[in-house]
């Protein structure tokens, strides 16, 4: 394992010491490592286990339970397309299909340039703007194919650092 950058080490240390019991920081530590590695690779899991004093199994128990921790490689931008009932009512399926077709990936797949991963997501809490998706911590409202095209183009062009929880 190559050493972690010092800022990240400091950050991990801060996360663990900010709480009374290191276990509480488990998700935060995994977020931070996911941010660093791009996803939670096995090395990240071993790191997290070291930092938290938990076993890799205990962390795997959590990482695989949750939706926003990725144990397999994902693109720079993870597109969470809400597929719950309100968005469904507004033909979310076709938005989802459209995204997959435009990007040329199967559901859950990552584009070849490593930019995008398309995932269906549980209701993201933006139902009044259905259909909706969440990328980079930002909601995109009342999607249409044209709107999707615009978003993809904007993200492709942009140099914005992906924002994920960390």
């Amino acid at each position: 394992m190559s050493p972690l950058p010092p800022e990240l080490s400091t950050e991990l240390h801060r996360l663990v010491t900010a709480v009374d019991n290191p276990r509480e920081a488990a998700v935060d530590v995994m977020y931070a490592l996911q941010h660093h590695y791009g996803y939670l690779c096995d090395e990240a899991m071993h790191r997290a286990a070291e930092v938290l004093g938990m076993t890799t199994l205990e962390l795997e128990s959590l990482a695989t339970f949750y939706d926003y921790l990725y144990r397999r490689p994902v693109g720079r931008y993870v597109i969470h397309v809400c597929d719950s009932v309100v968005c469904w009512m507004f033909h979310q399926d076709s938005i989802f299909d459209y995204l997959c077709r435009t990007l040329g990936v199967p559901p859950g797949g990552t584009t070849e340039d490593g930019l995008f991963t398309v995932l269906p997501a549980a209701c993201v809490g933006n139902c009044h703007n259905a259909p909706t998706m969440l990328i980079n911590g930002r909601f995109y409202d009342r999607l249409t194919p044209e709107a999707v095209d615009a978003v993809i183009a904007e993200l492709r062009a942009g140099t914005e650092e992906p924002v994920r929880c960390k």
């Binding site: 695989t64 144990r71 397999r72 994902v74 989802f96 559901p107 859950g108 995932l119 269906p120």
Partner: peptide, 10 residues
């Protein structure tokens, strides 16, 4: 939809 097997370890 063969939904994403994408984020879990294989």
């Amino acid at each position: 939809r063969g939904k994403a097997c994408g984020t879990r370890p294989p």
